[in-house]
Design a protein around this nucleic acid. Structure first.
Lengths: 158, 158
DNA sequence: GTCTCTGCAAAGTTTTTGCAGTCCC
DNA sequence: GGGACTGCAAAAACTTTGCAGAGAC
């Protein structure tokens, strides 16, 4: 499963526009970070993005990746997901969706499931406050790990 | 909203039993950490637990709190929740439940809502792997912050 | 008394920040 | 050319680990 080329292009365009609109410069480094996160659908962390971008821009530094991602989060082009303990993971899919997280290998897949979007919260829950987003998080073993066997690496519940 | 005294006692008992069963010693420090997390329903982080326990055990160190919580997570008495960016938060409610996280103040409340437990995933979603847990995460503004106004402090999506 | 636990300190991770030189516009 | 951006380095924030003395059983 990977992101379709036209969706990548759409995301890159949106991010470039957002950066320009905010008066920020489209530097070589930023554009490569944008390309990298736009093409990812497995919620990479900063280190993975850094390593991948560095093959194309060997002089880029880790803090530039951090700064670029922080900017994109602020602009609403990317979300910073706390799906697993450890380093923060980033997601360029900002449409409403849900997640499946494998407790063995830690991979996180987006879920498109209209059934999950139709969730209604009870009156008691509504009393807690004004709900803005509803995200369903499934945890389990992904098909690949199911085949391989092995032990949990992530084992967290929430 | 706070944890009922009999539920606190039940949790403390379970944790003490689990520690004993594993052959671990019920030290003064461990018991106070156990009491603290058992009585909390707002998913405190290590620092908060440390500060609160320290009022009763002034000599306790932060790493003892870290170590005790890690042990309790390993024993399945507590879950380590990645609800917000930043420090890990701990939850002594290990029954199946959902969460409401306020994007302003960061408070996280447990949700008991049978409607949310009845969620069914589609065939397409099932193909991703074997689902073990389903957690619904609501994000929004809690009633307290709704009254006060102010700006988001957490602003994360996932 | 034994064996584990604790506190201290140091180190490991992950992330942020200050500064001087570099590059986009 | 001016102002923002980058890379470096240092620091901050969060967490883990090694060790010697202290405490539970």
């Amino acid at each position: 499963m990977s992101v379709a080329q036209d969706e990548i292009d759409r995301r890159v365009g949106l991010m470039k526009d957002a950066l320009r609109e905010r008066g920020m410069k489209l530097t070589h480094q930023r554009i490569e970070v944008v390309r990298e996160i736009a093409a990812a659908d497995d919620h990479p962390d900063v280190e993975r993005i850094f390593r991948s971008v560095r093959t194309r821009v060997p002089t880029i530094s880790l803090d530039t990746v951090y700064r670029t991602l922080a900017t994109l989060v602020e602009l609403g082009c990317v979300t910073r997901a706390t799906l697993t303990p450890g380093p923060a993971r980033y997601d360029a899919n900002v449409t409403h969706h849900h997640h499946f997280v494998c407790t063995r290998c830690g991979i996180a897949s987006d879920i498109i499931d209209p059934g999950l979007d139709a969730i209604c919260v009870s009156a008691g829950t509504k009393r807690l406050g004004r709900v803005e987003t509803v995200e369903v998080r499934l945890r389990g073993t992904c098909s690949d790990c199911e085949r391989d066997g092995g032990t949990d690496r992530i084992g967290q519940h929430s």
